[in-house]
């Protein structure tokens, strides 16, 4: 026992805050929400066990649940690739021999820091309003705009544009990754007369695969978690016509507006499984397309 403490003591002491946090704020709540997902719970009485009723209702009868999934998946599948392509393109432009790179890097990164704020969500609502700037600019070119936010067919795209605007943080990671590619590879390819296009597909992409993978997983998880901007832009409800009913917005409303805590817990678990599934798929398929140059311990 004494030996055990001498060996492990310091480690456990330093890890103590994390242990508390992990059990009280992560593992405990996850298990608790699994339990709650099988109950009806309105915070007034005690949770009442109802078996699989929540899940059954969710999958068989709750049309808003399916709508929320549709909205969220559309958003993820549009915004993540758009953002990553933007980020990689700009990173490649910045990577090669520009002395003023710092200024551009700063300008392109700034929206990533501001994008999650309420101020920007409020701003976005106005930019894409019927009488907003976007339509005024389009009018200059003789294009008639739309009421982007209040039209259910277009509202989601305003959020995709907002996501694209924030390509800065994957861009920084791509830049670091590009720095790590040895220059002589390109020089050798240049001497062999390899075209730029081929250099991109044969050198840049394969060597960048770990970074692309990292960004893809991170950004996908981030996109699933999107809340504040969707909440503010949709006025807190997912309007118009549920076209901005992000999964997180739906969950929030079920829990804290209607106090259906049991049902919201079931929604939370489905979200956890979806994100877990995507992460797992990325990891299991990664060995086929991600090659690590020099693995360290």
């Amino acid at each position: 026992m004494k030996k055990f403490l001498a060996r492990n003591g310091p480690g456990y002491v330093f890890l103590l805050p994390w242990f508390l946090g992990f059990f009280l704020l992560a593992l405990g709540p996850i298990l608790a929400s699994l339990y709650l997902s099988f109950t009806r719970y309105d915070m007034v009485g005690d949770p009442r066990w109802i078996g699989f009723d929540n899940y059954q209702y969710m999958f068989e009868r709750d049309r808003r649940f399916w709508k929320a999934l549709e909205v969220t998946f559309t958003y993820v599948f549009l915004s993540v690739p758009a953002r990553l392509i933007m980020a990689l393109g700009v990173a490649m432009l910045l990577d090669k021999g520009l002395r003023t790179i710092g200024v551009y890097r700063a300008i392109f990164y700034l929206p990533s820091l501001l994008g999650a704020s309420i101020a920007i969500a409020i701003l976005w609502r106005q930019l894409f309003a019927a009488d907003g700037v976007v339509n005024q600019i389009l009018a200059k070119f003789g294009i008639e705009g739309a009421a982007w936010i209040s039209n259910p067919d277009t509202s989601l795209y305003t959020l995709v544009v907002l996501a694209m605007w924030q390509f800065g943080s994957p861009m920084l990671i791509f830049l670091a990754g590009l720095r790590g590619i040895p220059r002589d590879l390109y020089e050798a390819a240049e001497i062999d007369g390899t075209s730029k296009r081929r250099q991109f597909f044969r050198i840049t992409l394969p060597l960048l695969a770990p970074v692309i993978f990292f960004n893809l997983v991170l950004q996908t998880i981030e996109a699933f978690k999107t809340f504040s901007s969707a909440f503010i832009i949709s006025g807190g409800t997912g309007a118009p016509a549920d076209s901005l009913l992000f999964y997180t917005v739906y969950l929030f409303n079920e829990a804290f507006k209607f106090f259906r805590m049991g049902y919201a817990s079931a929604l939370a678990w489905v979200l956890l499984i979806i994100i877990g599934f995507f992460t797992a798929v990325s990891f299991f398929t990664s060995k086929y397309w991600v090659h690590y140059e020099n693995e360290r311990d």
């Binding site: 992990f22 704020l25 992560a26 405990g28 709540p29 996850i30 608790a32 929400s33 709650l36 998880i221 699933f224 978690k225 809340f227 997180t248 969950l251 929030f252 829990a255 805590m261 919201a264 817990s265 939370a268 678990w269 979200l271 956890l272 994100i275 877990g276 992460t279």
Partner: peptide, 12 residues
């Protein structure tokens, strides 16, 4: 825990 959405632990 990096991938756990805050919404999952929110209610408990």
């Amino acid at each position: 825990t990096l991938m756990i959405p805050y919404h999952v632990v929110l209610i408990p």
